[in-house]
Amino acid sequence: MSGQTTRLATAEPRWLRAVLMVVGLGFLFFFLALPLVAVFVEAFQGGMSAYVEALRHPETLSAIGLTVFIAVFVLPFNIAVGVAAAWAIAKFDFRGKSLLITLIDLPFAVSPVVVGLVFLLIFGAQGLFGPWLAAHDVKIVFALPGMIIVTLFITFPFVARELIPLMQAQGKDEEEAAISLGASAWQMFFRVTLPNIKWGLLYGVILANARAMGEFGAVSVVSGHIRGETNTLPLHVEILYNEYNAVGAFASASVLALLALVTLVAKTVVEWQMRRETVMLDTPLAPENVGQPSGTQP
């Protein structure tokens, strides 16, 4: 911040700063902090035992299990394709590159409900492949495969979006150096590229995971809401809430809120790590000290 003498030039008057801080922080309090607190307060409305009871309900446990399973299943695809897309886009020049970047963003722009409907139209009973799937007794919609497919769709952009700017900023020099020193493609990737992008990759995975576990609209359309079978935790929250089981709904919601908090902490830690590494690269250089080649010394 600027010092006392330049305060008038580059800062607001004291009263205005106070007003802006009250308005800004007040807004955050009412819109973000209060809802977060409310989740936990509502969850414990019926006391600790009711909370534990709600969480230990078999349907809740099965919803947690399904949510975790879908996320664990989906993330490897996100990582592999995200890294591949970022590699092609960040390190090479080709025609249609900016179109490809735009298309990667497409899943963010489409409403989750539309995403669910799209897959219903393809794999549903009246859909394009519906009759064929029914004849071969393959269930995709209103079953786990459909839920996995929409989650793949929804989470596709996260990893690539984090990695593309990072890898573009890092340039190609280190990889080219590795190749010129004789490294094979995989040696270059695992020894040079991956260590350089690990934090960015983790960041993308954290965001994709939060979305995969929390997705509601798209999964809701293709799940069929079969209790104990195709119910993820967010869908379970909805069911309990609509049944006026507030404690049950908020107990499940508190698990998801906890997930959100873990996500925020992990995100902050990773951001901090990334910032630290960039700062390290910009640190003032040590004083120069050029010696003589050893051979010229007596």
């Binding site: 020099d173 280190e174 080219e176 150096a177 590795a178 020894r191 040079v192 260590p195 350089n196 590494e277 690269l281």
Partner: peptide
């Protein structure tokens, strides 16, 4: 390389 391209990690 011009900017050395040392492996930073």
């Amino acid at each position: 390389f011009q900017h050395y391209a040392l492996f930073r990690h």
